[in-house]
Amino acid sequence: MRALRVRATHLVLFCTTFHLLGCGDEFTPASFIDRPRLLALRVEAQEEPSRAWPRPGEAATLRLHLGFPTDEEALSWALLACIDRGDPRGIGGCAGAPLALASESQPTLSAPRLDFLVPEASALGAGKSLLFLGILCPGAALTLESLDPALLQSGNFASLCPNPSATSTVFTYSSSIAVDAMSNQHPHFDAANISLRADLWPEEPPGLGESCDGSEGLPLISAASGSQRIGLSVSADSREVYRALRGAPPKEEDVLERLQFSAFTRFGKLDRQFAFLEENEPGESVEYEWKLSKDTTVSENRIVRFDFVVRDPRGGVDWIRRAFCLTP
């Protein structure tokens, strides 16, 4: 008992001190995209893309949402899907051989995706979740020809993407299989309620570059106008009520889904990366603030882009992208 008390005390004190001292402020915040980044993954049942959990025997697709500092960049990639072994921590492990593999060993602009078939219920065994592992290499070729789950799980993948000027990304993602009539829908951003300075913030028109002159149909923001308030909303049906075990001893009860928002930008800074609609607390909207860093000067117009991602705790995810034209 004393060891647990000591560890608890130190954890709380460390967190407090860390925040108090602003430790980590010297690093680029996670909300800032300064290199090719994997921002989200999404599994869609091919027959019903709004459903996050594919059924046994169903065809599904894994899609990736990438963010680049400026223009899209070519990258090589490899993806695999397997039945999740169910490790309580760590990056996960496969129970058996991969269900599907896909890769582009040479850099390409085509979006990574993985189509796979969920095994029939009789072949699933005890597994009720899918595990996805993969690697992305910006501007370089992958060195491996076949994806070895054990290699990815070992952490020994520095040599898989030998581009010293880029940062590779190895990822893990777990998603459930719809069994016993349980399922999960993806949350959905309400496009009609995405706001910038309380005004509707429309989607960016396609084909725009990095500069703007105010005719692109983007909101115009002056660099001298200070911080900007961003409002994000999800559709009314995005937050599902589902049965879950809660309390001790655990018992089943209805739970209103928690939603986790992530926000990213490529210029200026957001006040935070994460925002939450907490479990069982009603609501459909969160807000962010964006502003320029103190030492940043804007000498010419430029487009400032944002990515927003919303996740539920059961594998549902959605993303949107917005932009405005920043003037000096």
Binding site: G90, V170, T172, Q260
Partner: peptide, 17 residues
């Protein structure tokens, strides 16, 4: 820390020791 793995469920990076 010799690397990290992006955990897409939580939007964090898990350190590899």
């Amino acid at each position: 820390v010799v690397g990290s793995v992006y955990d897409a469920n939580s939007d964090i990076y898990i350190p590899i020791s």
